[in-house]
Every structure is written in C-alpha cells, then in structure tokens.
C-alpha cells in the first residue's frame, strides 16, 4: 500500500500580511514558513497513524516548490514520511500545481492520495478535486474521519449541518481536515532520521496555468470599536438594531 501526501509550505499563522512590487507579491521578508497546518496535522498525521497499524504502508510526500520548500519537506519527513519528491518549480495556480502532482502520482501508482483541506494562504480548497479529475479517481472532500479496511476506505465527510459516512474502494483522493487525526509533536530521532531519507527532485512537466494573480489588496481598516458600558446592554441591542441593522 502506497500513500501520497501533498505537502505545501505556508506562512506561519501569525505572519504579518503585506505586499510588495505594487501589490503584486506577498512580502516574504521576516516571514516564518511552516507546513500548511491541514497538510501536517491532518493529512500527514493520519497517514502516519495508518502506517503505525500496518507497517507495510509506504508514505511518500510531494511538494511543488522551489528549493526554499526544502526545510518544509524535511520537517514533514521528520514527522514520519518515508521519502519525498519535490517538483522543482515556483508554484503557479492551482491547476498548474495539481497537474504537477498528477504527474508524480501517475508515475508512482498510489492507492491513496491525501491533501489538506486548503492552503491557508491561497485558500483554494481546489487542488484535491483537480487532482482527482486529472487522475480520473473518486474524490472525497473535507474528510473528518478516515479508516482503512483492506482496500476499502470508510470516510466521513463534512456536509452542511452534519456528516456523511462513505465507503469507497481504493484508489481515492481525500482532502483532510480537523477530526481525521490526533495531534503530535516530531521527536528528535525523527528529525535525525529525516536527514538520510530520500528526497528526490524532479523537473516540472509543461502545463499552462489557467489563472493568474493580478494584484492583492488589504481590507480597509476597521473604524474602531464602539464601547458600550457593561451596565447598559439595552444600548448595545439598540445599536445593533438601529445603527448596524443586523437584528
């Protein structure tokens, strides 16, 4: 059994969001990079948990990104991947990235492909679905539980106001979110071992992106909070009704 986990690099959740080059580029100065939380906490950790139950499982990691994604993929290896593949290219749009991952996936014939629910910078929530289509595989999005029984997976996915439990024969692409796995902290031994795990660098396949970013904007600053004395809740309700018109 081979699992492919898609790992992306994202700015730390507390990073200051600012733009340069006439608002066309994210200002990366001083930004700490982390593994996109959904990819680490849910997709990767679930793959590791599955391997703990069945040692014959191999976990491969893939990232599409230039050399500066290397510390991120090494950290993911330290957490528990067996080997990693980096497609050596600055990432473009979702379709471009999905096409690169699809090429890696097709070459490796994986039984299971995990992505995170979304990247916390682009927030596309798109790559899993695109990848499934490119590979002609079924897709289960926003999974909250994932279990394997031989070559059948039982997956719970989010629906409006609840959950749906599905059964699906492998192979399948699954996007993972909260609930799928338990949290864990990488240990030193893992970090040492990661240095010797294989990290293969492959060149991108030729694909035309379908979209491009024209510019970024920051939201207008809030006018500032209007404070209401604690002993006058009626005033708050009046303001919400008459001024803000939300109740």
């Amino acid at each position: 059994m081979k699992i492919l986990v898609c790992i992306s690099k994202s700015p730390d959740t507390t990073a200051k969001i600012a733009f340069t080059d006439n608002n066309t580029k994210f200002a990366t100065d001083g930004v700490q990079w982390i593994i996109n939380p959904y990819d680490e906490w849910y997709a990767l950790v679930r793959a590791i948990e599955l391997k703990e139950k069945d040692a014959s499982i191999a976990i491969h990691l893939v990232t599409v990104g230039s050399a500066d994604a290397e510390p991120i993929i090494r950290k993911a290896l330290a957490l528990g991947g067996d080997e990693a593949i980096r497609v050596n290219v600055e990432s473009h749009d979702s379709f471009y990235i999905a096409s690169q991952i699809a090429a890696v996936a097709a070459a490796g014939s994986y039984d299971l492909i995990f992505t995170g629910k979304e990247t916390i910078d682009y927030n596309g929530s798109s790559i899993g679905g695109m990848l499934a289509e490119l590979l002609n595989m079924p897709y289960i999005s926003l999974a909250t539980k994932f279990d394997l029984n031989g070559t059948t997976a039982t997956v719970s996915r989010e629906i409006e106001g609840g959950e749906e439990v599905c059964e699906i024969a492998l192979p399948v692409v699954v996007s993972c979110q909260k609930g799928v796995a338990e949290a864990r902290i990488p240990n030193m031994r893992g970090i040492m071992a990661a240095r010797t795990k294989p990290l293969k660098v492959v060149e991108p396949t030729a694909v035309e992106p379908l979209t491009s970013i024209v510019s970024f904007e920051l939201p207008p600053a809030k006018a500032g909070v209007k404070l209401i004395p604690a002993d006058n809740p009626a005033e708050l309700v009046r303001l919400l009704h008459e001024e803000a018109k939300v109740i």
Binding site: S126, E133, Y139, L142, R157
Partner: peptide
Amino acid sequence: ANNVDGKAIAPRLSAKLKAGLVSG
C-alpha cells in the same frame, strides 16, 4: 456556491473543462 458541495465539484469541473477557477 463555495460551500461543501461547491468545493468538491468546482475544482473537478475546472480540471475537466480546462476552465480557470476562482474559488471563494
């Protein structure tokens, strides 16, 4: 709509039709 179903279907359709997608 970029709700649970939209998030599952729109990206697949984008890849199938090679149609650019803006989600959200």
